[in-house]
């Protein structure tokens, strides 16, 4: 039994992406269990909703980023050169807008729509939030896809297929992107997942603390970012600083300041784990 456990651990240690996936999920489960025991029900429910919403948005970001990137890469196959140039030009402009500014404005737009009563369902709001984030992160994926296509373009691969009469769209979409780049794309999606969580939490946090007087943050679905900006959570985080000077206070943090500490932990621990998973994946597939 002991040897088997040792074998499993050694195997996991050699595949760091899987190891960190286990650590991440295990950590989340542990925190949930702790909260179940020591956090009041309404607060726990809020954290659960915030967590689910945040990760739902991040997952939707992946879907939209993938779709946008695929459309973009295929649009660059357009026969008219000026159309391609225009497309790349517009993409570069979009790239020059700092992500946080773009997303902030997108969110302000969504909030205004909410205030005007044009958005009713929470899911629609989540989808819109994901679209906004995708618009400012999908270029990373486009860059990767274009880089992969360029790589095969430089080698004989592309031309060898062309002279066999194989359609260009098949070469790019099937042979290059699907057959030879899906691992790279998946790896990039992991990284985008992390970026999406970071940006989304940051914007939600900023909106909640900065714009809440005119744009009601209550209208937006609860996410980890909005929960962190919540006054109770802020008090909880401030308590961490307090414990630096009074170490005896540390024990209280895990019982009395659980909401804020949990939310902050979920954000940071998830970002760290996703980074480690992406790294392990890169190492395992020698990308």
């Amino acid at each position: 039994m002991k040897t088997k456990f040792k074998q499993i651990f050694e195997k996991l240690y050699a595949q760091k992406d899987k190891l960190w996936l286990v650590i991440w999920l295990g950590g989340l489960l542990l925190v949930w269990g702790w909260n179940l025991l020591f956090l009041n029900r309404p607060a726990l429910q809020r954290i659960e909703t915030g967590f689910i919403n945040s990760f739902m948005i991040a997952l939707l970001v992946l879907v939209f980023s993938l779709a946008l990137s695929w459309i973009t890469v295929n649009s660059l196959l357009l026969p008219h050169r000026w159309l391609r140039t225009l497309f790349v030009f517009l993409l570069n402009i979009l790239r020059s807008i700092p992500q946080i500014v773009g997303i902030l404005f997108g969110y302000v737009g969504i909030t205004l729509l909410l205030q005007q009563g044009k958005l009713q369902s929470t899911f629609t709001v989540l989808v819109l939030m994901a679209i906004v984030v995708s618009l400012f992160v999908f270029q990373e994926l486009v860059d990767l896809m274009r880089e992969r296509v360029r790589h095969f373009h430089k080698s004989d691969f592309y031309q060898a297929m062309l002279v066999r009469g194989i359609a260009e769209s098949r070469i790019i979409n099937y042979d290059i992107l699907w057959m030879n780049s899906r691992v790279h794309i998946f790896n990039k999606l992991i990284a985008i997942f992390g970026v999406a969580i970071f940006l989304q939490c940051s914007v939600d946090f900023i909106i909640s603390i900065g714009l809440s007087t005119t744009l009601s943050s209550i209208d937006l679905p609860v996410t980890l970012g909005t929960l962190l900006a919540n006054i109770d959570s802020k008090q909880d985080i401030l308590a961490i600083g307090n414990s630096l000077m009074h170490p005896s206070y540390i024990s209280k943090i895990f019982f009395e300041h659980l909401q804020g500490v949990t939310v902050a932990f979920l954000i940071v621990f998830s970002l760290l784990s996703i980074y480690k998973i992406a790294n392990g994946f890169t190492e395992r597939f020698k990308l």
Partner: peptide, 20 residues
């Protein structure tokens, strides 16, 4: 150290606000 490096700025700032 990893937690600090991955923390969004506001988490660190609010953690230290009472002291710094």
């Amino acid at each position: 150290l990893y937690f600090i490096l991955f923390s969004p700025a506001y988490v660190i700032a609010y953690s230290l606000r009472t002291r710094i």
